[in-house]
Protein backbone atom coordinates (compact mmCIF):
# COMPACT_ATOMS: atom_id res chain seq x y z
CA UNK A 1 0.00 0.00 0.00
CA UNK A 2 1.37 3.38 -0.90
CA UNK A 3 -1.01 5.87 0.71
CA UNK A 4 -2.25 5.43 4.28
CA UNK A 5 -5.52 3.52 4.59
CA UNK A 6 -7.03 6.34 6.60
CA UNK A 7 -7.08 8.39 3.40
CA UNK A 8 -8.84 5.73 1.31
CA UNK A 9 -11.96 7.35 -0.16
CA UNK A 10 -14.30 4.51 0.78
CA UNK A 11 -13.06 4.66 4.33
CA UNK A 12 -13.39 8.43 4.64
CA UNK A 13 -16.91 8.15 3.19
CA UNK A 14 -17.76 5.51 5.78
CA UNK A 15 -16.33 7.67 8.56
CA UNK A 16 -18.51 10.51 7.37
CA UNK A 17 -21.50 8.17 7.52
CA UNK A 18 -20.73 7.33 11.12
CA UNK A 19 -20.21 10.93 12.11
CA UNK A 20 -23.36 11.94 10.26
CA UNK A 21 -25.45 9.30 12.00
CA UNK A 22 -26.29 7.52 8.75
CA UNK A 23 -25.94 4.12 10.41
CA UNK A 24 -27.06 5.26 13.84
CA UNK A 25 -24.67 4.95 16.74
CA UNK A 26 -21.54 2.94 16.09
CA UNK A 27 -21.72 -0.51 17.75
CA UNK A 28 -18.85 -2.54 16.30
CA UNK A 29 -15.82 -2.43 14.02
CA UNK A 30 -14.13 -5.34 12.25
CA UNK A 31 -10.88 -4.92 10.33
CA UNK A 32 -8.86 -7.38 8.21
CA UNK A 33 -5.46 -6.50 6.74
CA UNK A 34 -3.46 -9.17 4.96
CA UNK A 35 -0.38 -8.12 3.01
CA UNK A 36 2.44 -9.77 1.10
CA UNK A 37 5.96 -8.95 2.18
CA UNK A 38 8.55 -9.43 4.89
CA UNK A 39 8.68 -8.71 8.61
CA UNK A 40 8.91 -4.97 8.14
CA UNK A 41 5.63 -5.06 6.24
CA UNK A 42 3.91 -6.57 9.25
CA UNK A 43 5.00 -3.83 11.62
CA UNK A 44 3.80 -1.20 9.17
CA UNK A 45 0.49 -3.00 8.80
CA UNK A 46 -0.03 -3.16 12.57
CA UNK A 47 0.55 0.57 12.85
CA UNK A 48 -1.92 1.10 10.00
CA UNK A 49 -4.47 -1.06 11.82
CA UNK A 50 -4.26 0.95 15.02
CA UNK A 51 -4.49 4.16 13.03
CA UNK A 52 -7.60 3.00 11.19
CA UNK A 53 -9.29 1.77 14.37
CA UNK A 54 -8.44 4.97 16.22
CA UNK A 55 -9.87 6.97 13.36
CA UNK A 56 -13.14 5.09 13.76
CA UNK A 57 -13.49 4.90 17.53
CA UNK A 58 -11.65 8.07 18.43
CA UNK A 59 -9.12 7.97 21.29
CA UNK A 60 -10.36 5.28 23.62
CA UNK A 61 -9.44 2.69 26.19
CA UNK A 62 -9.97 -0.88 24.98
CA UNK A 63 -10.15 -4.10 26.99
CA UNK A 64 -8.97 -6.84 24.63
CA UNK A 65 -7.64 -10.34 24.17
CA UNK A 66 -4.99 -10.90 21.49
CA UNK A 67 -3.58 -13.98 19.76
CA UNK A 68 -0.43 -14.27 17.68
CA UNK A 69 1.14 -17.13 15.80
CA UNK A 70 4.46 -18.33 17.12
CA UNK A 71 6.29 -16.84 14.12
CA UNK A 72 4.60 -13.51 14.80
CA UNK A 73 3.21 -13.42 11.28
CA UNK A 74 -0.41 -13.08 12.30
CA UNK A 75 -2.14 -11.19 15.08
CA UNK A 76 -5.83 -11.13 15.98
CA UNK A 77 -7.60 -9.31 18.76
CA UNK A 78 -11.11 -8.76 20.06
CA UNK A 79 -12.07 -6.16 22.60
CA UNK A 80 -14.56 -3.66 23.85
CA UNK A 81 -13.79 0.04 23.81
CA UNK A 82 -14.58 2.21 26.78
CA UNK A 83 -17.67 3.58 25.08
CA UNK A 84 -18.99 0.08 24.41
CA UNK A 85 -17.98 -0.33 20.77
CA UNK A 86 -16.84 -3.90 19.98
CA UNK A 87 -13.53 -3.84 18.13
CA UNK A 88 -11.80 -6.73 16.41
CA UNK A 89 -8.98 -6.96 13.91
CA UNK A 90 -6.79 -9.43 12.13
CA UNK A 91 -3.41 -8.42 10.69
CA UNK A 92 -1.04 -10.79 8.95
CA UNK A 93 1.63 -10.97 6.29
CA UNK A 94 2.11 -13.69 3.73
CA UNK A 95 5.76 -14.16 2.85
CA UNK A 96 6.60 -13.02 -0.66
CA UNK A 97 7.65 -10.11 -2.79
CA UNK A 98 5.94 -7.01 -1.49
CA UNK A 99 2.91 -5.99 -3.52
CA UNK A 100 -0.69 -4.97 -3.10
CA UNK A 101 -2.57 -6.25 -0.07
CA UNK A 102 -4.35 -9.57 -0.44
CA UNK A 103 -7.18 -8.32 1.71
CA UNK A 104 -8.08 -5.05 3.34
CA UNK A 105 -11.62 -4.62 4.58
CA UNK A 106 -13.31 -2.74 7.37
CA UNK A 107 -16.90 -3.15 8.49
CA UNK A 108 -18.64 -0.56 10.64
CA UNK A 109 -21.79 -1.77 12.37
CA UNK A 110 -24.26 0.78 13.71
CA UNK A 111 -27.54 0.67 15.54
CA UNK A 112 -29.39 1.47 12.31
CA UNK A 113 -27.23 0.05 9.57
CA UNK A 114 -23.75 -1.06 8.63
CA UNK A 115 -21.07 -0.22 6.10
CA UNK A 116 -18.58 -2.58 4.48
CA UNK A 117 -15.54 -0.96 2.87
CA UNK A 118 -13.13 -2.77 0.59
CA UNK A 119 -10.02 -0.73 1.26
CA UNK A 120 -8.44 -2.00 -1.98
CA UNK A 121 -11.08 -0.21 -4.02
CA UNK A 122 -11.99 1.79 -5.98
CA UNK A 123 -10.01 0.14 -8.73
CA UNK A 124 -10.38 -0.88 -12.34
CA UNK A 125 -10.33 -4.42 -13.62
CA UNK A 126 -8.08 -4.50 -16.67
CA UNK A 127 -8.07 -7.87 -18.41
CA UNK A 128 -5.73 -8.61 -21.29
CA UNK A 129 -4.18 -11.66 -22.88
CA UNK A 130 -1.26 -11.12 -20.51
CA UNK A 131 -3.46 -11.33 -17.42
CA UNK A 132 -5.26 -8.97 -15.07
CA UNK A 133 -4.28 -5.80 -13.28
CA UNK A 134 -6.22 -3.49 -11.00
CA UNK A 135 -5.14 0.14 -11.14
CA UNK A 136 -6.72 2.16 -8.36
CA UNK A 137 -8.35 5.51 -8.88
CA UNK A 138 -10.12 8.21 -6.90
CA UNK A 139 -9.05 11.19 -4.85
CA UNK A 140 -7.83 10.65 -1.32
CA UNK A 141 -8.82 12.92 1.48
CA UNK A 142 -6.57 14.47 4.07
CA UNK A 143 -4.97 11.91 6.33
CA UNK A 144 -6.35 11.42 9.81
CA UNK A 145 -3.58 11.91 12.32
CA UNK A 146 -1.95 8.50 12.79
CA UNK A 147 -1.02 9.12 16.40
CA UNK A 148 1.38 6.83 18.22
CA UNK A 149 0.60 3.11 18.03
CA UNK A 150 3.72 1.84 19.79
CA UNK A 151 2.21 1.53 23.25
CA UNK A 152 -0.92 -0.20 21.99
CA UNK A 153 1.09 -2.67 19.92
CA UNK A 154 3.30 -3.55 22.86
CA UNK A 155 0.26 -4.24 25.01
CA UNK A 156 -1.38 -6.34 22.28
CA UNK A 157 1.75 -8.46 22.03
CA UNK A 158 1.73 -8.91 25.80
CA UNK A 159 -1.87 -10.14 25.73
CA UNK A 160 -1.04 -12.65 23.02
CA UNK A 161 1.90 -13.97 25.04
CA UNK A 162 0.02 -14.24 28.33
CA UNK A 163 -3.36 -15.42 27.03
CA UNK A 164 -4.97 -12.81 29.26
CA UNK A 165 -7.13 -9.81 28.49
CA UNK A 166 -5.46 -6.44 28.86
CA UNK A 167 -6.53 -2.81 28.83
CA UNK A 168 -4.93 -0.42 26.35
CA UNK A 169 -5.48 3.10 25.11
CA UNK A 170 -5.20 4.25 21.54
Amino acid sequence: MSAPLTTQPGFTRALAAVRGGEIGLLRAVALDLVAVGGGDALQGLRIEAIGVLRAVTGPSSVELQAHSTSDGGATTFLGRAGHGVVVNAHVSVVAGERRECLRATIRLVGTHGSVLVDLLRPRLDVRTAAGMRHPSFGARRAEVSPGDAAEALTAIAASARSGQTISITW
Binding site: R27, A28, A30, Q65, H67, S68, T69, S70, D71, A74, T76, F77, L78, V86, N88, H90, V109, G163
Partner: peptide, 18 residues
Protein backbone atom coordinates in the same frame (compact mmCIF):
# COMPACT_ATOMS: atom_id res chain seq x y z
CA UNK B 1 -28.39 -10.72 20.09
CA UNK B 2 -25.00 -9.43 18.85
CA UNK B 3 -22.12 -11.70 19.78
CA UNK B 4 -18.44 -11.92 18.84
CA UNK B 5 -16.37 -14.92 19.91
CA UNK B 6 -12.59 -14.98 19.57
CA UNK B 7 -11.19 -18.52 19.51
CA UNK B 8 -7.58 -19.39 20.20
CA UNK B 9 -5.93 -22.60 18.97
CA UNK B 10 -2.93 -24.52 20.25
CA UNK B 11 -1.08 -24.01 16.95
CA UNK B 12 -1.26 -20.23 17.37
CA UNK B 13 -4.15 -19.77 14.96
CA UNK B 14 -7.18 -17.72 15.88
CA UNK B 15 -10.73 -17.16 14.73
CA UNK B 16 -13.28 -14.39 15.08
CA UNK B 17 -16.88 -15.60 14.98
CA UNK B 18 -19.44 -12.81 14.78
Amino acid sequence: DYLVMELGFANGASAVCE
